[in-house]
Design a protein around this nucleic acid. Structure first.
Lengths: 142, 142
DNA sequence: CAAGAAAGTTAGTTGAAACTAACTTTCTTT
DNA sequence: AAAGAAAGTTAGTTTCAACTAACTTTCTTG
């Protein structure tokens, strides 16, 4: 069996951000990750070295990093989950700042079954604009 | 203005469990809280002393504790949020263990606006059994 | 190409919240 | 009421993931 993963919320945040940086800038340097996560460079260096030993990325000191296959697969899952939750909350008419904040916090605690259910729900809701209008109205009233 | 609260996830878990114990057994002793949260008695003693200094409960060494008005208000909010999330996931047809686990993790990260939206959505969904059936079916297929 | 700036690293510290071990207080049972 | 059990407390340790300060490497630019 493949090696057991015990990824913490912090590890997930790093992987998610690294993938995002790679997708947008083509690379992810320590300084970029630090700015993006709003933590110090030293903390990033530490975590990256740990992710390297855990086989989630390959790091060459002072030079750069690349996600391994395992790391990329994990990062893609995390990103997909983040996007799905964002889409769902967006559908409910919430503000972008609220969505960002809440997704950032809760994403690490959503299991695959729950994610599947929210995915299905989101799809169905997209075909029910009248229902969504009611939900949004009722939300704003309180 | 009332004193600012900076309640961590841990604090919220304690308050939630304490209120639950008080509601079910009539009191909450250190040993009960420890068993219920699956942590050591020593950890509970520490946290309770902290919650006392923070004014969320009144503690008499070796004797017992009671929530203050502030503590109870907070605990009630936390409990309500927990219940709402549980109801919502229940509606989607998820298993009780999954629900318990996910709610336990995500409850601390849901802001009031998001909670209101989920509340409204839950209410509307309860009137849409056909839609819910579709969601459940689609969830199980994947 | 040398010097200063930017980026990266190391070492040691901090804070939250758990832990164990040893001790004290309270409760229970005879 | 005394002894043993149960409950509670204290002190000190551990882990995670941040931090700062000091240092090294790499990049940039005059």
């Amino acid at each position: 069996m493949p090696t057991e993963r015990h990824t913490s919320a912090a590890v997930e945040d790093y992987l998610e951000r690294i993938l995002e940086l790679i997708n947008t800038k083509g690379y992810a340097r320590v300084v970029d990750i630090a700015q993006s996560l709003k933590i110090s460079q030293a903390s990033v260096t530490n975590m990256i070295q740990r992710l390297d030993t855990e086989g989630l990325l390959k790091y060459e000191k002072y030079r750069g990093l690349a996600l391994t296959t395992a790391g990329e697969a994990l990062a893609l899952n995390i990103t997909r989950r983040h996007q799905l939750l964002t889409d769902f909350l967006k559908l409910l008419g919430l503000d972008d700042e609220v969505i960002y904040h809440d997704v950032e916090g809760m994403e690490h605690h959503i299991s695959p079954p729950t994610l599947r259910a929210i995915e299905a729900l989101t799809q169905q809701l997209q075909r029910q604009p009248a229902l969504l209008a009611k939900v949004r109205k009722q939300t704003d009233e309180n």
